[in-house]
Amino acid sequence: NQASVVANQLIPINTALTLVAMRSEVVTPVGIPAEDIPRLVSMQVNRAVPLGTTLMPDMVKGYA
């Protein structure tokens, strides 16, 4: 099972992602792969992401 990126805190809309804001977890459905965490740092989310939410490619500006 592949680990996905999960919000480690509430991430407000247009907030730049940080290492502290993300964690890796095996979840269903699978979201952005955990190995992409370094690439996600400083990218912005295009919606509010609640704690525990799996990050999907369409939630991160410039990711997809």
Rank of each mutant, 00 (worst) to 15 (best):
A21K: 09
A64N: 14
V27C: 07
S4A: 03
V6M: 04
M56S: 06
P38D: 10
I37V: 04
P50M: 13
M43Y: 10
Q2F: 13
P50N: 08
N46R: 10
N8H: 06
P33S: 08
L17I: 10
L55P: 02
P57W: 14
A34N: 04
R23W: 04
E35L: 12
L17P: 00
A3K: 09
G62R: 06
V26D: 08
V20A: 15
A3M: 12
V41E: 05
I37W: 02
I32L: 04
S24M: 11
L17W: 00
S4L: 01
A34S: 09
I13Q: 12
A48Y: 10
R23Y: 05
G31W: 01
I32H: 00
N14Y: 14
V30T: 11
N1M: 15
L55R: 03
G62V: 04
A16D: 07
S42I: 04
A34E: 08
I37C: 03
A48P: 09
D58V: 08
V45Y: 00
V60H: 03
L10R: 10
V41G: 03
A21M: 15
V60Y: 01
T54I: 08
M59L: 03
S42L: 09
V27K: 06
V5H: 00
T28R: 07
P29L: 05
T53K: 09
R23N: 06
P57V: 06
Q9G: 05
E25M: 12
T15V: 09
V41T: 05
I37G: 02
D36F: 12
V20S: 15
K61F: 10
G52F: 04
R47W: 06
P57M: 06
V6K: 00
G52A: 04
A48R: 15
A64F: 11
N46I: 12
A3C: 11
E25N: 07
V49K: 02
G62I: 04
N46F: 04
A21D: 10
G62C: 11
S4M: 02
V6G: 02
L10S: 13
A48I: 13
L51K: 14
D58I: 09
N8K: 07
M22Y: 04
A48N: 14
T53M: 14
A3V: 07
I13R: 12
R23G: 08
V20E: 14
T53Q: 12
G31R: 01
V49N: 04
N14Q: 06
A48E: 13
V26F: 13
G31E: 01
D58C: 13
V20D: 12
V6T: 04
K61D: 10
R47V: 13
Q9A: 13
I32E: 01
N8Q: 07
T15I: 06
G31S: 01
G52N: 13
T53S: 13
M56E: 06
M22C: 05
N1D: 15
M56Y: 07
Q2C: 10
N14V: 05
L51H: 10
L17T: 00
T18H: 06
A7Q: 02
V60E: 03
L10F: 15
Q44L: 14
